[in-house]
Amino acid sequence: MSDVKKFMFVNRKAPYGTIYALESLEVVLITAAFDQDVSLMFTDDGVYQLKKGQQTKGIETKNFSPTYRALEGYDVEKLYVDQESLQERGLTEDDLLVDVTVLSRAEVGALMDEQDVILSF
């Protein structure tokens, strides 16, 4: 695919309660495979997707959180987290399983303005 666009995936949903977070991640990987400019934004309950220490044995569901750490291998390096959403949930950057850039809401808004395609699931 010759035309490269800036894709942002906005994640507002927590993992496991619904399948959105997992299936969203599948789109992220494919979009990166098509050599697009990919960034991920985590806001509201979406920040829970990145919480360290997820143990899913008891709910008999695949723990897909290690995939966020593997994103770097697909050249997906732009991971952003909304600071206010972290704060509201009693979380800090240290609780997250991958390196992210923490942004204020104004910074998040400015970044959204730069995108060509914004997808949310």
């Binding site: 666009k5 619904t18 599948e26 789109v27 494919i30 098509f34 697009q36 997808l119 949310s120």
Partner: peptide, 21 residues
Amino acid sequence: SGLGQLVEAGTKSDRLVTFGD
């Protein structure tokens, strides 16, 4: 078909509109 078709919908459309929950 595959998810590549969604990526293509993003790259080749003038606008992409999502409807969901």
